[in-house]
């Protein structure tokens, strides 16, 4: 193997790793605030890419109807409880988004506009899914939440198959530029992925350190009961966490679609790899999860070169030693003498 291949594989690995990083960070936020392992996040990756591809192909994306029905249900429930101000998030906002999406599809808006609308649709789905699937469970165990996540995953791939069919899609690359650095060619897309990930991580850091909502979210993550006692709205913080996680998923979907074709069920596999990275970070540490994501991406890229068929097996088997190490060092928090 010569250096050029080595560097190309490394570049490839770091690019996919950066995408796993986004997903891992989203999973960690959702897990730390709500104790739910948001497995269906991976399906939202597919949702985002398929929504965008569908708009580019001048078809109305089915996801907008999914969003509208969930909003309508949430609106009905809120109004039944006399919460009139729910009209804005569950009535007005989706109506505006729907009209914009329909118009963009009808008149063929530029890709960037469609991309922003896809981001909006998929991001809005996150808190709604949390509202209907997880919130009613209250203080359920991590395991019950995990089973709900699995069930939700099947619901979402069923919906994706119904809305978009089984075809894989690719979206046009945002840039065809490439740069030569020494002997290596760095593609513009890779660079773009890296920059977006850096920007996202920076923005998230700013959000959680500098804003009141971010601080509330961190408080809820470190001690849920304590945060509630000082007035942090646990429902709001759960929904915000899921919004962030689904936003990360949507961005990842849009970043991957130009590199690899995505179909209704491939997002799940990508999500699982983000999840492997999050577990490497012990479901607690952001820097470790970030390192884990880059490692997973690189290992995948190299094992794809040497033993392509065994690529997934190698990546998923990575989990087991990490889990053993976690069990031995952390023990079971629910069982103390």
């Amino acid at each position: 193997m010569d250096n050029a291949i080595l560097l190309a594989l490394l570049q490839d690995g770091l690019t996919t790793g950066a995408i796993y990083l986004l997903l891992a960070v989203g999973l960690l936020i959702a897990f730390s605030v709500t104790r739910a392992i948001f497995i269906p996040q991976g399906d939202l990756v597919s949702f985002a890419a398929l929504t965008l591809a569908s708009m580019i192909g001048r078809h109305i994306p089915g996801t907008i109807w999914l969003l509208d029905s969930l909003c309508a249900a949430a609106l009905a429930l809120s109004l039944a409880r006399g919460r009139l101000n729910a009209v804005i998030p569950y009535g007005l906002a989706p109506a505006v988004l729907t009209i914009a999406t329909l118009a963009a599809t009808r008149y063929g808006a530029p890709t960037a506009v469609s991309a922003v609308l896809s981001l909006g649709i998929v991001t809005a789905l996150g808190p709604l899914l949390y509202r209907f699937a997880y919130e009613p469970l209250g203080e359920a165990s991590v395991l019950a939440l995990l089973i709900v996540s699995m069930a939700l995953h099947f619901v979402l791939i069923g919906i994706a198959l119904y809305c978009f069919g089984a075809e894989g899609v690719s979206t046009p690359a945002l840039t065809d530029a490439s740069f030569d650095i020494g002997s290596v060619t760095v593609s513009g897309q890779s660079l773009f992925v890296g920059l977006v990930c850096l920007a996202m991580v920076g923005a998230l850091r700013w959000f959680s350190v500098r804003t009141l909502y971010g601080k509330a979210l961190r408080a809820a993550a470190s001690d849920r009961l304590g945060a509630r006692l000082i007035g942090v709205d646990h429902v709001l913080s759960g929904r915000t966490a899921f919004a962030l996680a689904s936003f990360a998923a949507a961005v990842s979907g849009l970043l991957i679609a130009p590199i690899t074709p995505l179909s209704y069920d491939t997002g799940f596999e990508i999500g699982l790899k983000g999840f492997v990275a999050a577990v490497i970070g012990g479901l607690a540490s952001y820097p470790l999860a970030a390192a884990g994501a880059l490692i997973v991406g690189t290992i995948e890229s190299f094992s794809g070169f040497w033993a392509s068929e065994y690529r997934n097996i190698i990546v998923f088997s990575l989990l087991i030693p990490v889990l053993i190490w976690l069990s031995l060092t952390r023990g079971n928090p629910e069982d103390r003498a």
Partner: peptide, 8 residues
């Protein structure tokens, strides 16, 4: 492996 690490 204990707790929720096992199902993972």
């Amino acid at each position: 492996i204990s707790g929720h690490y096992l199902p993972l």
